[in-house]
């Protein structure tokens, strides 16, 4: 069983990495970009029948910092 966890900064929080990448892409001519954001992606292989709540616990306890980050969990397979 494979879960994908995406961790990203809350909106409104400055993402300096994204700003640098965005301005670099624009310098390369990709002026159509309206907004670029970065995310961390974790692919977590777990035992079959592992409920999504277990993955949620992982996010709460370690993978995301609730002060500045949000997370999304997707079941991949």
């Amino acid at each position: 069983m494979l879960y994908e966890v995406r961790v990203y900064l809350k909106s409104g929080l400055l993402d300096p990495q994204a700003s640098v990448i965005e301005s670099s892409l624009k310098r390369l001519g990709f002026e159509e970009i309206k907004q670029l954001k970065t995310q961390k992606v974790f692919l977590i292989q777990v035992e079959e029948e592992t409920p999504i709540e277990r993955i949620e616990e992982m996010c709460k306890q370690l993978l995301a910092n609730p002060v500045m980050e949000l997370y999304q969990i997707h079941k991949v397979e």
Partner: peptide, 11 residues
């Protein structure tokens, strides 16, 4: 302690 420490604004 409350809050968090994020990456410096100019990286």
């Amino acid at each position: 302690l409350p809050g968090a420490l994020a990456r410096n604004s100019k990286l």
